[in-house]
């Protein structure tokens, strides 16, 4: 797997550069072609797609250095099965865990503060088992591990209790699943960070658009991976009916969470410029909302 990765990484990094593919030993830094800002990988198994997408933007080595600790935050907030698309795809989570370990991570933790009973969510989402098998530490929330974090630049929130792992990990990878949600239209990476928050999260729901950006000022993932292998079109974020699930076979990876969320809005036929939280986030400099100014690479494994 490791040989393949490296070779592949370079092939993609060079875009159409066939010549570079012949030089697999060339160090990363010497590559002339810069990484795209955002990659989309389509049509294939979840594990393969997520790997391709991350490799396209520079590979996991760009985000995780040898010996670093990683907090991987999927959505596993609901007592639902993988095919119901309420939680992040377990195979993809496991693959990201493997990629982090391949990049030399000393530890990958997977956790979420769930909405339904935690043990049910961890178990029935399939994530606990898959991520553990891939080598992650899947941790349940321990109440005493929340600590108040001051939010500098927050508009409505000045501080909020945040899970200690989010503060202590070297790298945070945010890995939401794309779902319909009546509060924010679609729930993506910004809202997924609520799973790292303590306190009464219900209180965040009025003036939600501002508060969720405030939270995102304080917690800054270095990599955002959006699972759109299956997406939930209606009755989110809980869903339950397979009729509300569409199989898109697609993953988005980017270091720019505003761009990632903005691109994913298109899957729901929503113009990202109309989404209030993205506008607020872009204004505060959290990322690029204008997709025309984002360098996007699309990889289609189905052809």
């Amino acid at each position: 797997m490791a040989d393949y990765t490296r070779r592949d990484f370079i092939r993609i990094g060079a875009g159409a550069g066939a010549a570079l593919a012949a030089l697999p030993m060339l160090p990363e830094g010497l590559l002339a072609v810069p990484n795209p800002d955002l990659a989309v990988a389509r049509n294939g198994a979840p594990g393969l797609l997520v790997r391709k997408a991350v490799e396209a933007i520079g590979g996991m080595g760009r985000f995780v250095k040898k010996g670093q600790t990683v907090l991987l935050k999927p959505n596993m907030g609901w007592d639902r099965l993988p095919e119901q698309a309420a939680n992040t795809n377990p195979e993809a989570v496991a693959e990201v865990v493997r990629m982090c370990l391949e990049a030399g991570a000393s530890r990958v933790r997977v956790l979420d503060r769930t909405c339904n009973e935690p043990r049910r969510c961890y178990m029935r989402s399939g994530i606990e088992k898959a991520a553990k098998a891939a080598g992650a530490e899947v941790r349940h929330i321990v109440d005493s591990r929340f600590q108040d974090l001051a939010i500098s630049g927050g508009e409505l929130l000045t501080s909020w209790p945040v899970y200690r792992d989010a503060l202590e990990s070297d790298v945070i990878i945010n890995m939401p699943i794309a779902k319909h949600h009546n509060i924010s239209g679609v729930t993506l990476s910004f809202k997924n960070l609520m799973g790292l928050l303590g306190g009464d999260r219900g209180a965040l729901h009025n003036h939600f658009m501002t508060k969720i950006v405030d939270i995102n000022m304080a917690i800054r993932p270095s990599l955002t991976i959006i699972d759109a292998w299956r997406i939930m079109l209606r009755n989110g974020p809980t869903g339950g009916s397979l009729a509300d699930v569409a199989e898109k076979q697609l993953f988005i990876a980017s270091a720019d969470r505003v761009a990632a969320d903005a691109w994913a809005m298109g899957l729901f036929n929503i113009d990202p410029n109309t989404v209030e939280y993205l506008r607020i986030a872009a204004k505060r400099g959290l990322g690029q909302l204008d997709l025309k100014r984002v360098k996007i690479q699309e990889i289609n494994l189905g052809v």
Partner: peptide
């Protein structure tokens, strides 16, 4: 003011 926490958690497919 918007809230909808109840709607968010309602577990019914419809």
């Amino acid at each position: 003011e918007d809230c909808l926490v109840c709607e968010e958690h309602c577990p019914l497919p419809d």
